[in-house]
Amino acid sequence: MEKFTKLISPIVPLPLQNVDTDQIIPARFLKSTSREGFGKNLFRDWRFTKEGKKNNDFALNKITEGEILVAGKNFGCGSSREHAAWALTDYGFKVVVSSFFADIFKGNALNNGLLPVRVSEEFLQSIFNSNSQLEVDLENQTIKILATGQQEKFEISAYKKHCLVNGLDDIDFLLSNKKEIEKFELNNV
């Protein structure tokens, strides 16, 4: 997994609530047996018309540079498909900002080096209003609107932060504790 410490980037605003993983990557694109290549179908049915033309009103077609997606509350609800996180990272996103994340999505994102940053509803509105670049600093757990200097702290578990900063994943940690698992099985299973 790639390491993450700090990112300064323009945003791609998606001011909608309850963006579900069926929108992020529709089921008909889940037929691959690898983790790669999902970015081209990210938000497929919003990004393209049914004839396959670009929908020019959609944020991802208007802004092509941002590595930070900013969305309304309850982002990533619905299906547990990790393909949603793969599609976002494959497309080039490194951070998703929202006032609320669905649990499974949050876990999937973190397991793929995609940082979910939860901010207050007011701060989220300020981001949408400013449309400015953001600075996301994982070490200090801060997110800053560069145009206005407004800043907020965000939460992340110390363990997950350690993983992201060092590019480690959960399996490395679990595998290093195999003895404990075997001991647990002797006593419990």
Binding site: R35, S80, R81, E82, H83, A85, D103, I104, G107, N108, N111, N112, S157, Y159, D169, D170, I171, F173, L174, L175, N177, K178, I181, E185
Partner: peptide, 22 residues
């Protein structure tokens, strides 16, 4: 509960998942 594919891999490798208690 439902899990993502990275967690499926965790279970394959160790019969455990890392989860924050809800």
């Amino acid at each position: 509960f439902g899990i993502g594919t990275s967690e499926v891999e965790q279970v394959f490798a160790t019969q455990c998942v890392l989860q924050t208690k809800p």
